[in-house]
């Protein structure tokens, strides 16, 4: 039982990371029916920019915790810019020439370029990201929880909540929802829908960058850290439904927990298998995702 709870805890934090990245896929899919297949690389770059900034601030004799907090705005700003570049240089050009799959190629290509940049700037070797909180686990009810794991869950939920509040409360957020509902009608309201789509790409990369700096302290940071995460989060987005806000959290948790269960009870080597089987099952039986239909009306 204790073992099981322990596994649950580590599954939850990884699952929330998948959830945030998948949330980013949803953001652009909602407004433009396109996705950034370089989402994993957006995560990588976010983590690496965070790495450099945190180390710089520590060099300025700031404590690791405050260095981490102060680095966040820069990481977010970087994510916004990086996402805008993907939309303006890749997606928009491809949709302009009415190429059906052009945006897929464009976002994959940009992802590869970003990964190359990461390799050249930060090298190919994994780096140790300074942990903002103690790495010694807390014992809660006999279960070991790393403080960073708590921060991951809180940070991920805060991000999604903030976007949800923005969409519901502000007129600009409503303009984003309107664009997702009906782009032509949104244009008739005076909404510059191209700009809304660029913004959703910016926000999508911001989520990935946040996921990057959340997971970096408990894993190794480097040019290759994002690829597998981006792919699994894609599976989560499909499982949870590309149009359902809540679905990605549940989808992320399902994948994160099954992975750590398989890793513990079978073999770490097979850790990736159940998630992919789940993905295949969902694709064949509920292509809109486990929560796709019901949530469409609620968002």
């Amino acid at each position: 039982m204790q073992n099981f709870l322990q596994i649950l805890v580590s599954g939850i934090s990884v699952g929330m990371i998948y959830g945030v990245i998948a949330f980013g896929y949803q953001l652009t899919f909602a407004t433009s029916k396109t996705l950034n297949f370089g989402q994993g690389e957006a995560l990588t770059l976010g983590a690496l920019v965070g790495f450099t900034t945190v180390n710089f601030l520590i060099g300025m004799s700031l404590g690791t915790f405050w260095a981490y907090i102060l680095a966040l705005p820069l990481v977010f700003a970087f994510g916004l810019v990086q996402g805008s570049i993907v939309e303006l240089l890749g997606v928009r050009q491809a949709t302009k020439i009415k190429s059906e799959a052009g945006w897929i190629m464009a976002t994959i290509a940009l992802g590869i370029i970003f990964k190359n940049i990461a390799e050249n700037v930060w090298g190919k070797d994994p780096l140790k990201f300074p942990s903002p909180v103690s790495e010694a686990p807390l014992t809660i009810g006999g279960v070991n929880v790393r403080p960073m794991e708590i921060i991951i869950v809180v940070g991920a939920l805060a991000m999604m909540l903030a976007v949800e509040l923005f969409n519901r409360r502000s007129i600009y957020g409503k303009a984003v929802v309107a664009t997702s509902n009906d782009r032509d009608a949104a244009g008739l309201m005076g909404i510059n829908t191209s700009r809304v789509i660029t913004f959703s790409y910016a926000l999508s990369s911001l989520s990935a960058a946040l996921a990057g700096v959340l997971i970096a302290p408990i894993t190794l940071t480097g040019a290759n850290m994002g690829a597998a995460l981006g792919l699994k989060a894609f599976a989560v987005a499909i499982i949870g439904g590309l149009s359902s806000g809540l679905g990605v959290v549940v989808g992320g948790l399902i994948l994160g927990i099954t992975e750590s269960l398989t890793g513990f009870y079978f073999d770490t080597g097979y850790k990736d298998v159940p998630g992919l089987i789940l993905l295949l099952l969902v694709l064949s039986f509920k292509p809109a995702g486990l929560f796709g239909k019901a949530a469409i009306k609620k968002v």
Partner: peptide, 28 residues
């Protein structure tokens, strides 16, 4: 202003939000 053929209301938003979006240029 254009009230288009087929209504094209924003189905996942409330009536009030739809009306506020009509005033989007005024609110921004």
């Amino acid at each position: 202003a254009h009230s288009p053929e087929g209504r094209k209301v924003f189905s996942t938003l409330s009536v009030t939000d739809n009306l506020l979006l009509g005033a989007y240029p005024r609110l921004t």
